[in-house]
Amino acid sequence: MTTFAQKPDYSLYSNAFGYLRQPLNFEPQTSDADVVVIGLPFDMATTGRSGGRMGPGAIRQASVNLAWEETRWPWNFKLSECLSMVDAGDLVFDCGDQADFTSRVENFATSMLESGKTLLSFGGDHFVTLPLLRAHHKQYGKMALLHFDAHTDTYSQGSKYDHGTMFYHAPKEGLIDVEHSIQIGIRTEYEQQGHGFKVIDAATANDISAQEIVEQIKQRVGDMPLYVTFDIDCLDPAFAPGTGTPVCGGITSDKAMKIIRGLKGLNIVGMDVVEVAPAYDNSEVTALAAATLGLEMLHAWAVSHNKAPK
């Protein structure tokens, strides 16, 4: 059985190859891992500052700060004892070819899901979520979407490859059900008439408790298969400066983690964290936030799928 790697006596800056120091496995479909981590080094759909292609590496590097913990506070179990995981490295595609990247993401994700794995994906710009949703739809049918972001990404005027149009296309392709989907942290302009998604904007999210937000999420999602996507610019730039389109007035990393923890019990089928651009980061705080959110998602997934001890 592939389990979490034994905790070696490494320093925080050495041998940080896999996420949370997990083993690299470039043929993950043959492993017995529950969860496969994949990096998607793509930023050719950005409309602002590029650099998201370097995000997966930065997230892995920052994750060494989390790897030494056996029991992640405030969870009461060791993830290493109930979850097996491998890191498949970064997706390889023809450099500069957006169509090739899109098809390779969908094909890779499809093969992982068909082999019984769950994916935790690190971007890359937010466009990467669209081919991931296409693959997950093949396995789970129409899904609910929990979307953390400063932007709705429902804009119709973008190009075919645009990190602001994924959730305009996804409902039209029948991948997600907007009536069971919810967006958290929005604080930029969007067409509200006919929007479909429930929105808890950033100002509201900052004024109410994390528990109130969780209750609204659970009421909205119900028992549908749930895909969770977290654009790091949902966080205020004070907590995540290293991103392509930062917007003031976002939520704190503390509130985001509390919300993610509250997802336990929901039918989480896929997860991603995107838009980390390390060239604009300060002291790796954005990469650390992304790595930590991924870890919280893994704990919530483990509880939801009865992997964690009762």
Rank of each mutant, 00 (worst) to 15 (best):
V64T: 15
V64M: 10
N65M: 10
L66M: 09
E69S: 10
T71G: 10
W73R: 10
N76A: 11
K78W: 00
S80E: 14
E81L: 07
L83C: 07
V86T: 12
D87P: 01
A88S: 14
G89Q: 07
V92I: 12
D94I: 10
D94M: 08
C95S: 13
Q98A: 14
R104C: 04
E106M: 06
N107S: 14
F108W: 11
A109F: 05
A109C: 15
L113C: 00
S115Q: 11
G116Q: 09
K117E: 10
L119I: 15
L120K: 00
D125C: 08
H126N: 13
H126L: 02
L132V: 11
L133T: 05
L133M: 08
R134Y: 00
R134V: 01
A135H: 02
A135N: 02
H137F: 09
K138P: 05
Y140R: 11
Y140N: 03
G141V: 14
K142C: 15
M143D: 06
F148L: 10
D149F: 06
H151A: 08
D153A: 05
G158N: 11
S159T: 15
K160T: 13
D162C: 15
G164Y: 05
Y168N: 08
H169Q: 08
K172D: 05
L175W: 00
L175G: 04
D177W: 07
V178Y: 07
E179A: 11
H180V: 10
I182T: 06
G194E: 11
H195M: 12
G196I: 08
